[in-house]
Design a protein around this nucleic acid. Sequence first.
DNA 1: CGATGATTCTTCCGCAGCAAAAGTAAACCG
DNA 2: CGGTTTACTTTTGCTGCGGAAGAATCATCG
Lengths: 382, 382
Amino acid sequence: MTSWLPLSPGERSVAIEVLVHGPLSRTELARRLRLSQGSLTRLTKPLIESGLLVEAADAGGPAEARQGRPSRPLAVVAESRSFIGFKITEDVVYGVVTTLRSDAVARLDRPLTTHDPGEVADLLAEMTRELGARFPALAGIGIGVGGLVRDRAVVGESPFLRWRDVPLAELVGERTGLPVVVENDVAALVEAETWFGAGRGLDRFVVLTIGAGIGYGLVLGGRRVPYPEENRGFARHWIVDRNGPLTPDGERGSAVSLLTIPSIRYQIRAATGHDATYEEILARAAAGEPMAARVIDEAARALGTLVAQIANFAMPQKILLAGEGVGLMDVAGDVVDATIRANRHPLAAPVGLETKVSDFHDWARGAAVLAIQVLVLGSVQG
Amino acid sequence: MTSWLPLSPGERSVAIEVLVHGPLSRTELARRLRLSQGSLTRLTKPLIESGLLVEAADAGGPAEARQGRPSRPLAVVAESRSFIGFKITEDVVYGVVTTLRSDAVARLDRPLTTHDPGEVADLLAEMTRELGARFPALAGIGIGVGGLVRDRAVVGESPFLRWRDVPLAELVGERTGLPVVVENDVAALVEAETWFGAGRGLDRFVVLTIGAGIGYGLVLGGRRVPYPEENRGFARHWIVDRNGPLTPDGERGSAVSLLTIPSIRYQIRAATGHDATYEEILARAAAGEPMAARVIDEAARALGTLVAQIANFAMPQKILLAGEGVGLMDVAGDVVDATIRANRHPLAAPVGLETKVSDFHDWARGAAVLAIQVLVLGSVQG
DNA sequence: CGATGATTCTTCCGCAGCAAAAGTAAACCG
DNA sequence: CGGTTTACTTTTGCTGCGGAAGAATCATCG
């Protein structure tokens, strides 16, 4: 039971479909996977015997009383395994415990007082022990780090931790005895949203995160497209408006200069001489204060332009805006929408835009999903 | 033999691989398709018996004299079938005959003196007879039309022909007795490049055409992504530079205003009062004439910006620039390249940019590829 | 010039995994 | 209580694949 019985390709597709799309009857599964009903009986049997699936207890509610033999929806036993996800920031480690369905059932944060790889690994192992005490069936650990990660195991380069080629998966693995996956934090969030979130079941899907920096993830055919400049500040070269503001980070008028929280705060500080939090700036813009309103308006236009460009060129079925900097949408969502419309053909399909404010625990949850994938897919492959 | 024996999925994949990637030995095919050698003997036998494939005659050249039993590369019998492709413009119909490998072996153009659907179909049938006299084994007809095409059969809307809901495939089919595929001209060119051209074997591929208008085609996982605003002047809403020139067509500073041949000619005419052809303008820009140089420089910057945005957001492995308006690259290719670099991260993979000047026969050839696909795939599905 | 090895292709066997069809179960309906 | 409807199971047969062994065909080397 440490890892699952090796699943056949057919069994795996059934497991993923039920895991991701909730309770489904065998007939429904047969239709979705284009298999015969007989095959479904065959494929589900070992999955039920191994304890991964159960016949959902009567669906609880009265259900739609249809004619005929009632269906037996199959569901994953979400609590049969627990997973741990960590998000490492410069000064805090955020941890969550999730079920198989990636629901967070516990949280734990710890200050990060050192950047020494070994001591960080010690801390993660200690947090794992603490969390694992309450949730015994731990099946894996996922770790999200800002920076370049290789092979889902080694932190190749992380500026804020000042790490180079740190084999973090190995360090944590030998301290905990659990399978460990390390991934770039944006990539982890993208995977999580692709499997369990806004991108569920979609063929083309984009995640755009706004926070201290900008993150971009493209999912095609259910798989994330990797690219070399990932998480290396690529968006500082996305020039949105050549006459835009100049900030310490990013080229003039780049997405970074216009949209990230530090750049917006910098612009306000440069203009008014006073520091203000992001939320304060948003509130002032909503209240009509000219300086804040101008900066936020410009940011909203930039966001609308970016979203339109993404929609025009990558043609995703949905675009998810995530991160701590999407509060912008509440204050200036109409500006964003108007800008998108101005940069798209009137006959074009409306952009499937979804906004999701995420905190650091959401990033940690994203990392946990990586561990879930490894267990279900049986490999570390992205 | 009218259509091929229905191919099994395995046979079809072998046929396509050999058709698209030239002569290949069975062992090489086994590796590419991830099949065993035994399976390849099984799959190739009926294909050879049916006359689709042959064991290439010793590869002609001396080959690399390696050890062991020499390989027997398989090749399609390109001349076993012929295909006809048409491109319909406002006043001319361009026709080509191609082999199975989409090599054009004959051409025929005719002026189009009427837009009446029946008479156009008559003309196409007559041209088909004329072309077919020299190439007997006709297996299908592909027709490319600017405008909206539904179900690869019906021209839903074509402004320059003033057509609405014309069942062109049916009209031509009943006059020729051949299978007919109708498709939007850009889509046809994209399919052709995906199968036989620059996009061969690529997973993510973009075609950007510049001519009287702008065309965009996105290929993901070997399949073209359809979108509703296709060929309806969508690029007039791609705003590249808000302060760009204003032209009769397209929003201010849009890709259409900056890049299409009519818009460039309009800008020169508006500035100098004299009309000039596109080629003249390019020559004058190359010679350093200020007005032309300014317009062409602006166009090159716009193109670079577009290419960078496409590369940043859709992340294709290659971008093909095609159409009659890519002469721009010869005169101002360095400006385009510099602009691309300025809008991309230094660590990003260099954009695989390929330029291909295409005339109207290339568009017709693209349409012929659709007929090839139908024969090989056995269906009209895109 | 024959033995050896390398490489490609063919033949044959066994079986995984599927669809199709027929059978069983569990509800509702009158 | 038998008919109807729908969901699931069992059985059967077959397709199409991998694997292993063998045949073909070349280079190389003693």
